[in-house]
Computed example of a mutant assay.
Amino acid sequence: MGCFGFLKVMMFVFNGIIFLAGAVILGVGIWVKVDSGSILNLLDKIPNAPVELDQVSNVGYLLIAVGAVLLILGFLGCCGAVKESKCMLLLFFIIILLVFLAEVAGAIVILVFRPLAEQLIRKLGVEMVEDIQKQYGTNDDITGLWNTTMDTLKCCGFNNYTDFEGSPFHSEYNLFPSQCCKSTSSACDADNTSTSPVPGCYEKLVSLIDNNAVVIIGVALGIAVLEILAMVVSMSMYCHIGSKHNA
């Protein structure tokens, strides 16, 4: 097998994986939009939810769009390699290039506007704390959503246990949720929280992101390298096919 044959096989295998990944993501996106019991619909039912949360309902559309793009990429790459089609390979190269440029632009925006994003999260946090103090313990959706979040992240409230002061749950039982307690598995009083407070979910989320920043950056760089290799291979095949036709 010559160098060109090897490139054809690699293009076919690589883009076959992209095609299958696109099909899976597209299926998940369609499921998210169709399934009425998904978490997105649960968020839509939360009364007095922050306006910004409405954007979460677009996740299904985003997955559908990403899946469709990957399907197109996989199809163009596979067929372009097998049929030695310059047109398909050129389209594949252009789409990969646009995706790569969009990712670079997105990374720059994240770095530049990170403080703004933190301010937005803090703003959302104020409204979340208000919902806790008004509805935690009486509204099943609010109560269940916070319990799940606290169980998953091992945290307590948005800031800390004081977010629950004045809530229906605290007013009725004079206790805090079990997730805020250090030494018991059931609800507890302030003495069991203030002596060694459980971190708030905002602090835990920021810590989680910071601790995994190296992994996130590594994955992003890995994807960027694959995209660059895909562009190099597609252009190599494009030029080789062009030289064969001109010979």
Rank of each mutant, 00 (worst) to 15 (best):
Val51Pro: 03
Leu91Tyr: 10
Asp210Ala: 11
Met11Cys: 01
Ser194Ile: 11
Pro50Phe: 07
Ala187Met: 07
Ala107Gln: 10
Thr149Tyr: 01
Asn139Gly: 06
Gln119Thr: 14
Val232Gln: 09
Cys239Ile: 13
Leu62Tyr: 10
Glu203Cys: 01
Leu229Gln: 08
Asp151Lys: 11
Ala81Phe: 00
Ser243Trp: 12
Met231Arg: 07
His170Trp: 05
Val232Leu: 13
Ile18Lys: 00
Arg122Ala: 15
Lys123Gln: 15
Phe100Pro: 00
Asp189Pro: 01
Pro197Phe: 00
Ile217Met: 11
Lys8His: 10
Thr138Tyr: 06
Ile228Val: 15
Leu89Ser: 02
Lys154Glu: 15
Leu42Tyr: 02
Ala220Thr: 14
Leu124Arg: 09
Leu175Gln: 08
Ile216Phe: 05
Gly242Thr: 05
Met235Arg: 04
Glu227Tyr: 02
Ile209Val: 14
Arg122Thr: 13
Asp151Trp: 02
Ile241Asp: 02
Val24Arg: 05
Ala21Lys: 04
Lys244Thr: 12
Ser196Tyr: 12
Gly37Pro: 02
Val28Gly: 00
Leu98Asp: 06
Ile17Cys: 08
Ile216Tyr: 06
Pro177Ala: 02
Cys87Met: 09
Thr149Ser: 10
Leu205Asn: 01
Ile217Ser: 05
Val9Arg: 07
Leu71Lys: 02
Cys3Ile: 11
Phe158Asp: 03
Val82Arg: 11
Lys83Arg: 15
Ile64Thr: 12
Met150Leu: 01
Ala220Trp: 03
Thr195Glu: 15
Phe169Ser: 05
Ala68Thr: 14
Cys180Gly: 01
Cys3Val: 12
Ser186Phe: 14
Asn246His: 13
Asn147Arg: 04
Met88Leu: 11
Leu226Ile: 12
Trp146Lys: 05
Ile39Glu: 08
Gly16Val: 05
Asp35His: 10
Phe6Asn: 11
Ile217His: 01
Gln179Trp: 02
Leu111Ile: 10
Glu127Val: 01
Val51Ala: 14
Gly106Gln: 08
Phe6His: 10
Gln119Cys: 02
Val198Ile: 12
Ala81Ile: 00
Glu127Asp: 13
Met150Ile: 00
Lys45Glu: 15
Ala23Phe: 01
Gly16Met: 03
Val34Pro: 03
Ala102Gln: 07
Leu205Glu: 09
Val24Ser: 04
Gly137Ala: 04
Gly137Val: 07
Ile110Cys: 08
Gln119Phe: 09
Ile64Ser: 03
Gly60Met: 04
Met235Gly: 07
Asp54Met: 10
Gln133Lys: 15
Arg114Tyr: 13
Ser85Met: 03
Gly125Met: 03
Ile96Lys: 03
Leu116Glu: 15
Pro199Leu: 03
Tyr238His: 12
Leu42Arg: 13
Thr195Ala: 14
Val82Tyr: 05
Cys79Met: 06
Cys79Phe: 00
Tyr61Thr: 15
Leu20Ser: 08
Val126Phe: 11
Ile121Pro: 00
Ile108Gly: 04
Ile108Tyr: 10
Lys154Cys: 05
Thr184Ser: 13
Leu221Asn: 06
Ile217Ala: 10
Ser196Val: 07
Asp140Ala: 12
Phe169Arg: 03
Asn15Ala: 05
Lys244Gly: 02
Asp44Val: 03
Lys244Asp: 13
Pro168Leu: 07
